[in-house]
Amino acid sequence: RTRSRSHQDDTLLIRLLPVVARHQLCVHLDSLDVWQQLATAVKLYPEQVEQIRHQKDRGRSPANEFMNIWGGQYNHTVQSLFALFKKLKLHHAMRMIKDYVNEDLHKYIPRSVP
């Protein structure tokens, strides 16, 4: 069962994430090479997927291009990004943005394995 929280979500926007935090997150996501999973999970259009691939081929960060599109054009929040990471079980990525989401969501981050 799912419960929608979207209408209470007035949290920080992805496009307003501090530059350093966003950069570190992109480095991490690029090291996992998960941009296609991200794009598929949020149903980006084929031409947007091509655009990300094109940036990647030019040596640019595909995760950053993903955030330009999903955060930059569609105005999604860091809380939605957190939900996306949870869905894809990107637990370290959830941890990296936990300071930008409400504390009552921290319980969804699994404890890190030593």
């Binding site: 799912t2 929280r5 979207s6 979500d9 569609y74 939605s80 949870k86």
Partner: peptide, 16 residues
């Protein structure tokens, strides 16, 4: 309701 612009919210499901 669908596509990249749709709200993306936390699924509070059985994997909790």
């Amino acid at each position: 309701a669908d596509g990249p612009a749709a709200h993306f919210s936390l699924e509070l499901g059985d994997d909790m």
